[in-house]
């Protein structure tokens, strides 16, 4: 669809051959990314799959590829000198220490900025800051009113109040509310099939810990109470 809309001449840009990142480099990038947005009380860059976005961006530009190639090599050299092991093998705290040491370098700033930009535009990142991301067709007609919810960042605290009454409500609040705000759920209307797909995505992509019958009960609740209008 994009190809038909955008002129041919706008697509000519930069189809340059860039050397791919090797497995070792990819592992190191994933480690750095997980330090920049760590997983703590809320999901981090790892759960949001940001490393692959960074890899893709690097493999698009020869200039970036060079910066990352030499940046990663330098990091390994430092790691070998100080700890006698490669960067990915040293402890988390040792990695953190090395990264603090290079945080002003062009290489680190690039990984940092890419990671931050991607993460805070990803679903998990947006949920982490309490941004429900409700664009169209919902909008916020109540924008002149105080925000709903008490602003508490703890998942599940606002909980059950916002969910419609019905069998399975508690389980939905506990399971879904662990990782994101519940108005992300209540703002949507889907068929059973679509809810099943969403729940599957939560399990496979975001690693939600759900037992098989639990996910069935959740899908049943969602399709009964939040089906199409």
């Amino acid at each position: 669809m994009l190809a038909a809309l955008v002129p041919a001449w706008r697509l000519i840009a930069a189809a340059q051959e860039v050397e791919r990142l090797d497995a070792g480099e990819k592992t190191a990038i994933a480690v750095i990314v997980s330090h920049i947005i760590p997983t703590d009380t809320t999901p981090g860059a790892q759960e949001a799959g940001i490393a692959s976005d960074v890899e893709a961006a690097v493999e698009k530009s020869e200039k970036m590829r060079k910066i990352y190639g030499s940046g990663l090599q330098e990091l390994d050299t430092q790691s070998q000198t100080q700890f006698g092991k490669s960067f990915v093998e040293i402890t988390y705290d040792q990695q953190e220490q090395l990264l603090r040491g290079i945080e002003k370098s062009e290489f680190f700033r690039s990984v940092r900025n890419l990671t931050v930009r991607r993460f805070y535009n990803s679903q998990l990142g947006l949920e982490g800051v309490g941004y429900p991301g409700m664009g169209q067709p919902h909008g916020y007609r109540d924008f002149d009113q105080p925000p709903s919810g008490n602003g508490d960042q703890h998942r599940g605290m606002e909980a059950e109040a916002t969910l419609p009454e019905g069998e399975g409500k508690k389980e939905v609040a506990a399971s879904c509310g662990q990782c994101h705000r519940l108005n992300v759920v209540t703002s949507q209307r889907k068929t059973r099939e679509q809810w099943q797909q969403t729940v599957n995505k939560m399990i496979t992509k975001y690693h939600a810990h759900l037992e098989p019958d639990s996910s069935d009960r959740i899908v049943s609740y969602l399709s009964r109470n939040l089906g199409p209008h």
Partner: peptide
């Protein structure tokens, strides 16, 4: 936007950055 707000701390990273980002609603 969340990205603009997070961008107000252009050098922070790690847990400190996440805590800054969490004041987004405020």
């Amino acid at each position: 936007t969340p990205i603009e707000f997070v961008g107000l701390q252009p050098t922070l990273w790690g847990a400190e950055l996440k805590r800054h980002a969490e004041s987004y609603r405020y």
